[in-house]
């Protein structure tokens, strides 16, 4: 049974030190209100996995000192430029980066969701991405002739964490076409979700909503969080990205002092509002 959690703090308590966590990109569903609560808890040593990249939320977590490892194909604030705390942490050597390429992350999650030990993929051979990933192996295509392919081991995060438009009281979560969230939930051991709205009825009863719904089977716990993706928007809702705020973040986070002021104003100082 999906646990219906009544506060963000209670949901944030399920994000424990050292957890490996699958994160969606900024244009999917980012659980930013939840991440602010996680930062307020002072969680440490997270291993973030960008599916296949991450942005603002990961940069915020890195800046707040919550992250040990960033496994991702990129970290970016999109039009707002480089992710400043990620960049600073890499240059200082204070986090480990496991660089990937997008389909390799998807391949690892897809192996996990089918319970297979690995997936194989094309590409990568001759790159420094592959050269620096001792956990990926070049193998010979057993059905081919002198045809090297890359084996990507199953990637099974401890947690998948995201925000979505709505869920019902059975724990079913509607994600529409953002189906990377479905793969994340299938692959992860546990999935924590915040939603704009918990609705009456059953999202599985209508095939139109069922097609875009993650069954409660995969959802460990969920909580309601209005505008829970802010300052990011949320697909298939009226919530659009707050670009003025993101530009302000990009500017403030350029320095450690500026980032500390940002945290004080918008994260630790925001608790009462959330």
């Amino acid at each position: 049974m999906t646990e219906m959690v009544t506060s963000l703090e209670a949901l944030a308590a399920k994000v424990t030190d050292g957890a490996q966590i699958a994160l969606p990109p900024d244009y999917s569903g980012c659980a930013n209100a939840l991440w602010r609560a996680v930062i307020r808890r002072g969680v440490r040593d997270l291993h973030l996995v960008g599916v296949p990249v991450f942005g603002y939320h990961g940069d915020l977590l890195i800046g707040a000192g919550c992250v040990a490892v960033a496994e991702t194909s990129a970290v970016t604030l999109g039009e707002h430029g480089l992710a400043p705390r990620f960049t600073a942490a890499v240059k200082a050597g204070s986090i480990i980066v496991k660089d990937a390429t997008c389909p390799a992350i998807h391949a690892g999650l897809q192996a996990a969701e089918r319970g297979a030990p690995f997936s194989v993929m094309r590409g990568l051979i001759g790159s420094d991405i592959l050269a620096r990933r001792a956990d990926w192996k070049v193998i010979d295509n057993p059905f081919g002739d002198n045809d090297p392919v890359v084996a990507i081991p199953a990637l099974t995060p401890d947690l998948a964490v995201f925000h979505a438009a709505k869920a019902d009281r059975h724990g079913n979560v509607w994600i529409g076409v953002r189906r990377e969230l479905m793969v994340m939930a299938h692959a992860a051991r546990d999935t924590l979700v915040t939603v704009e709205e918990i609705v009456d009825g059953d999202l599985m009863a209508d095939p139109v909503t069922k097609a875009g719904t993650i069954p409660g089977l995969y959802v460990t716990a969920l909580a309601e969080a209005k505008e829970g993706s802010w300052p990011q928007g949320l697909p298939a809702t009226d919530l659009v990205s707050d670009h003025a705020h993101l530009a302000r973040y990009a500017e403030m986070a350029k320095t450690a002092d500026g980032f500390a002021a940002y945290l004080a104003e918008f994260v630790t100082g925001r608790e009462a509002a959330e």
Binding site: V53, F86, K91, T101, P103, A104, M121, G123, L124, S127
Partner: peptide
Amino acid sequence: DPDLPKARFPGSFGSGYLYYV
């Protein structure tokens, strides 16, 4: 040095695959 770089950029995105196919 990628482990202690002078400059760091976002990352490779899908290039490690799409450039090949």
